[in-house]
Design a protein around this nucleic acid. Structure first.
Lengths: 184, 184
DNA sequence: GATTATAGTTTCGAATCGAAACTATAATCA
DNA sequence: TGATTATAGTTTCGATTCGAAACTATAATC
């Protein structure tokens, strides 16, 4: 089989989308909206804006703006104006939003499938997918959206953690989040 | 990171969808339509119907019927009535359809990313993803859509290959295709 | 031969999507 | 300082997807 790997990915993506669609029905949430919500729950304070979501999902900002409006109307996210730049609004996942995500994202059957793999198989899968993703992001030249801790700008020193790009100090909970400024 | 593996899959799926959207623009094809077209190019004669595409994509048959109409209008697929069951129409990818798929599916940048992995890394990724997919399909209880050759109904004997379910003989080109009746 | 099941299409209303116009604030540069 | 340009985000519009349900036609069942 020529495109075996691609086929597996497509099929898994299909199943994920199906399950996501199903789990969103109770709140009337579309798959895209859930993806946006989940992204916002995993990203750091440099990456919780409309534009960051736009980049992450690969859609236009107009489209994303509408999806975010839905999430706000359902009280799953709230908006906070940025202090220094008045054009920017930060999007925070509310308690209700986290509650919803907790038992829908990742979808339950996916978690079951994961549990069917041994710990070493899971690790192995993580490693190879991470590598594939890295290569793919390089090839497309798109924003990488990596975990802060592994970023080349992240400066973990004895006196604490620092982002070399923003020159801000980071907490331990900060550095495990996803950042749109990530670079390998 | 808790849901690391899920995050990688989501991100790869996003990039694939973005690239698919881009590559479909020249023919005015939506990602779903391309997925349907690609599926039809990989499946066997038991699996090239509207309903099989519906199961594969996890959508409703009405929706899929519309997408297929688009593909037919663009002359990327053609319809053939089934001989024995007049309710059934088989969907065949035309030369133009195969031409289009040849340089868009898998998307080019994805292929580049793949090429960035060593042969053994590619193999390893295939193995673990296959296992994950198997478990996921078990968990969801959905149609498996596996390769004919690996199916439990496939009976490769000295006198040829036979499908134990349909009792039909299969060719070498048959058994590398995807079948909706596949079972482990 | 009547009922039920299956394959597929059509219709309709709700929702996504991109493109483009628009507002508001920030940054640049003369 | 003031004019220009860039950036963050929203709104509007038309095209398209999507699910639900009604519909046609053929096959299987009883």
């Amino acid at each position: 089989m020529e495109n075996e790997l691609f086929n597996y990915l497509e099929r898994i993506a299909n199943l994920l989308r199906q399950e996501t669609r199903l789990e969103g029905q109770c709140l009337g949430l579309q798959p895209v909206q859930q993806e946006a919500l989940y992204y916002l729950s995993t990203c750091n304070r440099y990456s919780d804006t409309t534009l960051a979501v736009t980049e992450f999902l690969g859609l236009t900002k107009g489209t994303v703006s509408q999806s975010l409006k839905v999430l706000e109307n359902k009280a799953l996210i709230s908006r906070e104006k940025d202090n220094s730049d008045k054009r920017v609004t930060h999007l925070k996942v509310t308690a209700a939003g986290r509650e919803f995500l907790a038992h829908t994202c990742p979808p339950q059957k996916f978690n079951e499938a994961m549990a069917g793999l041994s710990a070493s198989e899971q690790d192995e899968t993580k490693v190879v997918l991470h590598k594939l993703l890295q290569k793919y992001q390089q090839a497309t030249g798109r924003t990488a959206f990596g975990v802060c801790r592994n970023c080349k700008f992240n400066q973990t020193a004895t006196e604490g953690i620092l982002c070399g790009l923003t020159q801000e100090t980071l907490s331990i909970t900060d550095v495990i989040l996803i950042c749109r400024e990530y670079e390998d």
